[in-house]
Design a binder for these strands. Structure first.
Lengths: 331, 331
DNA sequence: TTCTTTAGTTATACCAATATAGTATACCCT
DNA sequence: AGGGTATACTATATTGGTATAACTAAAGAA
């Protein structure tokens, strides 16, 4: 069996387990030749330390847990990848746990005693949040606004992102606008819509309820919604704003299929800046949310909370509009 | 502090720690009222079991580790998501560990003593593989062919997938073909190319080295390669076969940009069947590799190896060609 | 010479749980 | 009453490490 322990090494090397532990942890109190001998034996026996044993005694695990309810979605991989590298910088390891309903999941994850948690779980309930708070492990939430001594949030300023798109359209004197909603109870979707709507209202541009469609952040749903909308024969909107890029793509699919030209007949704007924006024809104008920065900021913040240098706070990241072909109106 | 242990519960409930353990683990030897009292106390104190302690004593962790070197790539999320749900079915939990060079990573992961491992790490070196083998923990490799008592492989029959595309083109009497390679030392890329080339050779269709381009599985690289190729002014290939969908998309971008029409002037085939195949214009003909099945088979196999019901073996999943617009030749 | 210091190593408590063996009490049977 | 047997619970060893205190032997100082 591959279950070699320090006890086995101690026996084989003819020393005590304390000496083995010292040798392995680089505590500089051993004779170099003893140390080297032990390391040689450990290597020969294919020793791999049992982290359960180690973490039981020493409080620090040097691991950060990333809680998610889903691995899907266009930017999860990018975000998680950034966090992996950021963790490495600070000497931490990122472990990803997929989280589903039921308290056992939270229990399992907190039970591992990671040094800190990053939570990206829009659909986690209040009880779950409470459990995390009670456990008092430093935590960063990525999709809800919470703050306490050991809890921070690093979220998008989605309200402002919505405003940004509104201003972009207002500047171009566009008035008849169709909005494609995201997931209805999603924080970002709600804020994006609110910012957009309120900024339009300030410019006296009303948003007709018939011009608000359901997209649910999915390409297919948005495609169907826009297709159904077009068949109603209402006046074609001068612009479509979709709550994320996937639904913007579905929207464009439906428009192109119906024979409309983008941006000649109508313009389209999305949110996220996923890779496909550059690959689609026409290339999609979108709000690049701060999600790449989010990973960096979240880990930095978490590490500082773990070390006790900083207390929890709230960081809001605003996006930046990237103009591409889908809004390239030739005057 | 949220560090409540069974000792605290024992004290608070006025029983021994053994009784607490029994109550929590549902061993049915306690008086119902004792049991309920203990559970009530545990709940009140916000008890969360320390898995390090638990896993130290009891060998089974009920966790499966997924090793990956990167979270990126078009199908990782889908594959991992499937595995999460499969694990749940069997009562396991999937923990994802991102793995980078250096032995410490493998050590860290194996050190957690998961019950089994799934490895998706094309760029892991022989030493790493050896370490995993030495540790004798049930393992399924997803991108290399290995087999022993405790090691299985669930891989694509990429050789056959290459043949499939060759046959598709041969049937259509296509002779001048351009191949866009994947990552050069990648197993699937190599096999796909080998199967393709050898099947063409059987039909006496040579593959001119000038018609073999570097795509590295990336859209950008393929785009540049095809663009450079087109500028050389060689006779336009009747077909392009790219080692994956991303490079097929790069290829189509370059072709469309140069003014060629697909499939009228030339046809394009990819491999993977990522979502974008359906969204691109024209929709991309591709080989849907067995990657969705891969997750299901891998977890099933792993669970049976863990329980000792089955020994390691090799499963090869072959793909299926899905015809779409990019090869819709009108006679 | 005797005491102190220091380098190098060891013994042991401890972490939080599980598992096994053991104990006390009540009950049953002849 | 004595012996057997459930029932309900407890004491304790164990797991693989770390950390602290303790020990030993040799060197240095008074």
């Amino acid at each position: 069996m591959g279950k070699v322990t320090i006890k086995d090494i101690a026996r084989e090397a003819g020393v005590s387990i304390s000496t083995v532990s010292n040798a392995l942890n680089g505590v500089n109190v051993l004779k170099p030749e003893t140390r080297e001998h032990i390391l040689e034996v450990a290597d020969r026996l294919h020793y791999i330390p049992n982290l359960n044993g180690r973490n039981l005694k020493s409080k620090a695990t040097k691991a950060i847990g990333l809680f998610v309810t889903s691995l899907k979605g266009p930017y999860f991989a990018t975000l998680a990848d950034i966090m992996v590298w950021e963790c490495m910088k600070y000497g931490y390891e990122l472990n990803i746990f997929v989280f589903w309903e039921g308290k056992s999941a939270i229990t399992n994850i907190l039970g591992k005693r990671v040094d800190g948690c990053v939570v990206l779980a829009a659909d986690i309930d209040e009880k779950g949040v409470q459990q995390i708070q009670d456990f008092e492990v430093p935590t960063v939430f990525l999709d809800r606004e919470l703050k306490s001594d050991k809890i921070s949030s690093v979220i998008f300023d989605s309200y402002k992102d919505g405003e940004t798109v509104a201003e972009f359209l207002i500047e171009r004197n566009i008035k008849r606008i169709c909005f494609i909603q995201g997931i209805l109870n999603n924080y970002d979707a709600i804020e994006r819509f609110r910012g957009f709507r309120e900024r339009l209202a300030k410019a006296d541009i009303p948003l007709d309820p018939e011009y608000v469609l359901e997209g649910a952040f999915e390409r297919e749903k948005a495609y169907n919604a826009v297709k159904a909308f077009l068949e109603k024969g209402l006046p074609l909107p001068e612009a479509f704003f979709a709550a994320n890029d996937l639904s913007a793509i579905g929207c464009m699919d439906a428009l192109l299929e119906a024979g409309y030209q983008i941006p000649k007949d109508t313009v389209v704007v999305g949110v996220d800046d996923i890779d496909f924006c550059e690959w689609y024809n026409p290339k999609l104008t979108t709000v690049k949310t701060g999600y790449e920065k989010q990973g960096v900021v979240a880990i930095k913040k978490l590490v500082k909370m773990i070390s006790g240098e900083e207390k929890g706070d709230i960081t809001k990241l605003h996006g930046r509009l990237i103009e591409r072909q889908s809004t390239a109106i030739t005057e």
